[in-house]
């Protein structure tokens, strides 16, 4: 049996293109679709690590069967418009930088549940969290996928287009962590 041709595999820069304009399928059209969202400011040093991780994942999409039903979205920040895309996915992986006090380059994976943080959405959405986006997906479109957040601890978010060396070195680890999260989901081992 010939493999089903992939209609996913797109890398979408949210500043350039909306996912819906690209003809991405609804979940009912493509069961098992994964959406990977890397976000951060590409002009603020380590804050861009989530974008870089997702670009690296996208480059591996043809080599890894896990990624064949994935779409890849990079953005400066999460916005309410992403709720529809998230709702139509079977699994969502968010990748972000974290100023969490851990040594720069530390990679953490956390499984998410929809949750609205009090006060969220009051500062023109710069405070929209992955949990909040899942919550909006659930409220607006009736479903929120299983989801994980991969964070890379960072140290330098000053103006600049380069990652610091420790954070740069952690990109492959974060890529592997995202792949493992997707693999756990595909095997039914996702834990909320």
């Amino acid at each position: 049996m010939a493999p089903r041709p992939s209609v996913t595999g797109r890398l979408i820069d949210a500043a350039r293109q909306s996912p819906a304009a690209s003809g991405l399928p609804a979940a009912s059209e493509l069961p098992g679709r994964v959406v990977v969202i890397g976000y951060g400011n590409g002009l603020r040093g380590d804050d861009a690590v989530g974008r870089e991780v997702v670009e690296a994942l996208w480059l591996q999409r043809d080599r890894l069967s896990l990624l064949r039903t994935a779409d890849f979205l990079i953005a400066t920040q999460l916005t309410p418009e992403m709720a529809e895309e998230v709702a139509s996915a079977a699994y969502a992986v968010f990748v972000d930088a974290a100023l969490d006090g851990h040594p720069a380059g530390s990679v953490t994976v956390r499984f998410l549940q929809p949750a609205a943080t009090p006060g969220m959405g009051t500062t023109c959405f710069s405070d929209l969290t992955p949990e909040g986006l899942l919550y909006m997906a659930l409220e607006l479109y009736g479903r929120a996928p299983d989801a994980a957040l991969v964070t890379v601890s960072v140290a330098n978010c000053a103006a600049g287009t380069d990652l610091s060396p420790l954070v740069r070195a952690s990109v492959p680890i974060a890529v592997a962590s995202a792949q493992m999260a997707i693999a756990r989901h595909s095997l039914g081992h996702h834990t909320r």
């Binding site: 418009e81 529809e84 609205a116 006060g119 969220m120 959405g121 009051t122 919550y135 607006l140």
Partner: peptide
């Protein structure tokens, strides 16, 4: 309640209104 007086609160109270906003912006 200011903690819920935001677009998330709108999504809870009137999801159609929130969907309309998202769709028109898109």
């Amino acid at each position: 309640d200011p903690a819920r007086r935001n677009i998330v609160g709108v999504a809870e109270a009137a999801p159609q209104l929130a969907r309309d906003g998202i769709a028109l912006r898109k």
